[in-house]
Write a protein that binds this DNA or RNA. Structure first.
Length: 799
RNA sequence: GCAGUUGUGGCGGAAUUGGCAUACGCGCAUGAUUCAGGUUCAUGUCCAUGUACUUGGGUGAGGGUUCAAGUCCCUCCAACUGCACCA
């Protein structure tokens, strides 16, 4: 057959669309499979080869499963809220809606040209009011259940540009845009109480099939630690104040020689009048405020700080008076913002003690505290009732017991994960459906008023004091309070981009529902997602956020399964031909549509999946791509050597290949599946002929990778309907087993030749045959004879 | 620093989980087809040695277990990714 992809590919793409070949049925007696890929942000740059790799893996899998008679849901959509469209609007004045619609159209065309088997009737767009209505609805449910709260926090703010800056945009304490000094400004922030779900997010991992390294990243991100809260007493002149610290080693309490509080700790303002060196302290605070989080963590070695003169702390277990410092190695955002310092057994405290001349008291034997802190195990000393303990677990348990008895502390846990800051001072996002009323406080917009539509604006620049552009619209801001009917003001911030993607997999189950975010019956049928593939960059934030939303919806009885994703995988990056990460500035970007144009979508598809281990990154290679094109040319050419009857000598290889391809696609080993097909086609050409039915089997196996050419061949061979819906080949186990096997023959583990023997030969027979072959090489006495059936004979001799 | 992953030909990568290392593809070499380039086809291609049959060596380095190690154990080294003063 003459392989003309420019004619074949559009032809089949159109037929698939017209016949809705990939439409998922909401009711079916078939087994269901829900394959999910991360929906793209429709950027102006268009489809990237990275998108192609991410989608092609599951596309091949879904194509095979459909042929295996599964009811497959393989949807796609657009995560279209976000900064690029807004920044473009600021620059050009073109509304983000216009740009987003253009980009979605462009992306859709491009994806169709690659031949993904998406169900195009289920496309969703997070910026569509019919969609974000339900994003807002779920937000209000969270609000209703007390999982949304407002708090003040310090943000980086540029007084000149009047915008809130991210840490990245404010390095060195200077605004990235105008280079004026950035100040720390107190700002109201909406939080989602995700920490409430921290434990659930951890334990849920035991019930899902994620690769170990992905689980580990989530575990690290959540960052659970167990320890204790201990109350110290501060003496400030004649006043007393409780200061609670969090520690993972309460058993080292007798080794505490000073305390440290974070520079932002409220204690300092509260007792400013009593702190003798308050000027010095304030100067230090100012220094710290200038440093970004990033810089603070860079200066790991040099410990800085200031002693709080006029304040002393009392160690609750021995009554010792110890000094209190502020230092920026203690973070306000973790634990209680204050620590008890045990320099003998914590390297940071040790470094600080050396720099500031504090005492170092050993309470665990085993190290040399004259040179560094010792954090290993050992016998407890200088510790009153803990003396003699050698096991960390026991001494910690005993100390917590004593603390609780004395009423000065208790066991507790801490998480690194913080509550989720859920507002942005931006235009192009879901409006937060809250009204501020002087009388009633923060009031939810009534459910029936959703969606709260994003109003039209003329100017997309942020407003005064870094407010959202929405704050400039009196018609939007001024409203009446849903509670008391008095004049009130709307929240003008919008949700972060993570919002829309936190539940999109639910909407795919029932994308056009106007009564609910999805019909419960349909959710129960499709959920959980059977396989979710995406990038490594999303395994912490997006994956955790969406698990959290789903767990919440489960708790309030709106979804039927506790975890949204049964299985997760992550594809590796495609690097540029130079082995570096693809980027515009490097000029090493490969445009998938160029490849489709020049070589055809089937070549692109086959190559991307053949490149190497799906989960590993690999550089793009044009020559290797041509190799895949050659393979497809050879596939097309098979019709020229086709015969009516089957070629018997191909049967065994064909059945082995069915087995290999079927198993490999299921576990995402696409590269070896394609290699097996290449091996088989070499064999077919060597034989010079292939039977018609054998050829049909071969193209069915190839079709998940190169669907267009296979559809075309299937049609020419008289196949009914679409190959995409044809039954997947089944292998006959008997035919995958050869009657004879080649067995390696070794002496002392070294290969000395091979012999071909009957598969079912017994040990004696195999060894006898091997000895016969080795007759002239067997010198010395035979010590041992090993036969691994079907594999190897090893004869151990001693000279 | 901590955690995770990975080290196999000139390159991308295979290896039924302890059993013939380098499947498949690229590249390269030789030959055929072609006016020529390209394409296509055939053969070869881990390294060393030999005319061939052969014989050594070989999976980041070093050691160990085993009849047998890319695979298991110990000690290093390197690279990548994530987190990072988390008390």
């Amino acid at each position: 057959m003459n392989y003309n992809f420019k004619r074949i590919e559009p032809k089949w793409q159109m037929k698939w669309e017209e016949s809705k070949v990939f439409k998922a049925e909401d009711e079916s007696a078939k087994k269901k499979f829900y394959g999910l890929v991360e929906f793209p942000y429709p950027s102006g740059a268009g489809l990237h080869v990275g998108h192609c790799k991410a989608y092609l893996g599951l596309d091949a899998m879904c194509r095979m499963l459909r042929m295996q008679d599964y009811n497959v849901l393989f949807p796609i959509g657009f995560d279209a809220f976000g900064l690029p469209a807004e920044n473009y609007a600021i620059k050009t004045g073109i509304h983000p809606r216009v740009v987003t619609d253009q980009n979605i159209k462009h992306f859709t065309e491009q994806m169709k040209k690659v031949g993904f088997s998406f169900d195009w009737d289920r496309v969703i767009d997070t910026t569509d009011p019919d969609y974000y209505k339900w994003t807002q609805w779920i937000f209000l449910k969270l609000f209703e259940k007390g999982l949304v709260f407002k708090d003040k926090t310090l943000v980086n703010y540029c007084p000149s540009c009047k915008v809130v800056l991210s840490n990245e945009d404010s390095q060195g304490g200077k605004c990235d845009i105008c280079h004026s000094d950035v100040v720390q400004k107190s700002k109201d922030v909406w939080y989602l109480r995700i920490t409430e779900y921290a434990d659930r997010l951890l334990t849920g991992l035991d019930t899902v099939e994620f690769p170990e390294h992905i689980k580990q990243q989530q575990i690290n991100w959540i960052g659970k630690s167990t320890g204790a809260f201990v109350d110290f007493t501060l003496e400030i002149g004649s006043e007393k104040e409780k200061l609670t610290v969090y520690t993972t080693r309460p058993d080292t309490l007798f080794g505490v020689t000073f305390m440290v509080v974070a520079p932002e700790h409220p204690l300092i303002e509260k007792y400013a009048a009593q702190i003798v060196n308050i000027d010095e302290v304030n100067a230090y605070k100012k220094e710290c405020a200038k440093k970004t989080e990033f810089e603070r963590t860079q200066l790991v070695k040099d410990k800085t700080g200031v002693k709080l003169s006029g304040i002393e702390a009392v160690n609750p277990v021995n009554g010792k008076h110890i000094p209190v410092f502020i230092a920026d190695y203690v973070m306000m955002g973790y634990g209680t913002g204050a620590i008890m310092a045990v320099p003998a057994h914590d390297q940071r405290d040790y470094d600080f003690a050396k720099a500031f001349g504090a005492d170092i008291i050993e309470v665990i034997k085993g190290g040399d505290i004259s040179t560094e802190a010792y954090s290993g195990d050992g016998e407890m000393v200088n510790s009153d009732f803990l003396n003699g303990y050698t096991n960390k677990k026991d001494s910690i348990a005993r100390m917590i017991e004593e603390l609780e008895k004395m009423g000065i502390g208790k066991g507790g846990v801490q998480f690194k994960m913080k509550d989720w800051a859920f507002n942005r001072q931006r235009y192009w996002g879901e409006p937060i459906p809250i009204v501020h009323c002087e009388n009633c406080g923060n009031v939810a917009v009534p459910y029936e008023e959703l969606p709260l539509r994003l109003p039209e604006v003329e100017n997309f620049q942020p407003g005064q004091d870094g407010e959202s552009p929405l704050a400039k619209l009196p018609d939007f801001v001024n409203c009446t309070c849903p509670g008391c009917g008095r004049p009130a003001k709307r929240e003008t911030d919008t949700m972060p981009q993570w919002a829309g993607s936190s539940w999109y997999f639910l909407r795919y189950c029932d994308p056009h529902n106007s009564e609910a975010f999805a019909d419960r019956k349909k959710l129960d049928y499709w959920m959980p997602v059977d396989h979710y593939n995406g990038g490594m960059e999303h395994v912490t934030r997006h994956l955790i956020y969406s698990r959290f939303w789903h767990q919440f919806l489960y708790d309030i009885g709106l979804v039927g399964c506790p975890e949204p994703y049964a299985k997760r995988s992550a594809q590796g990056l495609i690097l540029g031909p130079d082995g570096e990460k693809m980027s515009k500035s490097r000029g090493n970007v490969v445009d998938p549509l160029d490849i489709v144009e020049q070589y055809g979508a089937d070549t692109l598809r086959t190559y991307v999946l053949f490149m190497g281990d799906y989960a590993a990154s690999a550089p793009w290679n044009d020559s290797s791509l041509k190799g895949c094109r050659k393979f497809l040319d050879r596939v097309a050419g098979l019709t020229d050597i086709m015969t009516d009857g089957a070629e018997p000598s191909l049967e065994s290889g064909l059945h082995k290949t069915i087995k290999k391809v079927t198993e490999d696609i299921r576990v995402m080993k696409f590269n070896t599946a394609i290699a097996a097909l290449m091996g088989l086609i070499n064999d077919i050409y060597a034989k010079g002929r292939i039977g018609k039915q054998q050829l049909i089997t071969f193209i069915k196996l190839t079709s998940p990778f190169a669907p267009h050419i296979c559809e075309e061949m299937y049609e020419q061979l008289g196949g009914e309907g679409f190959i995409s819906k044809a039954p997947w080949p089944v292998y006959d186990e008997k035919k995958t087993i050869d009657a004879t096997v080649e067995i390696a023959v070794q002496i002392n583990g070294k290969l000395r030749g091979t012999i071909t023997l009957a598969r079912d030969i017994d040990k004696d027979g195999a060894i006898a045959a091997a000895k016969e072959m080795l007759a002239d090489k067997l010198a010395g006495t035979i010590v041992k004879e090993i036969y691994v059936p079907g594999r190897i004979v090893n004869i151990v001799v001693k000279p």
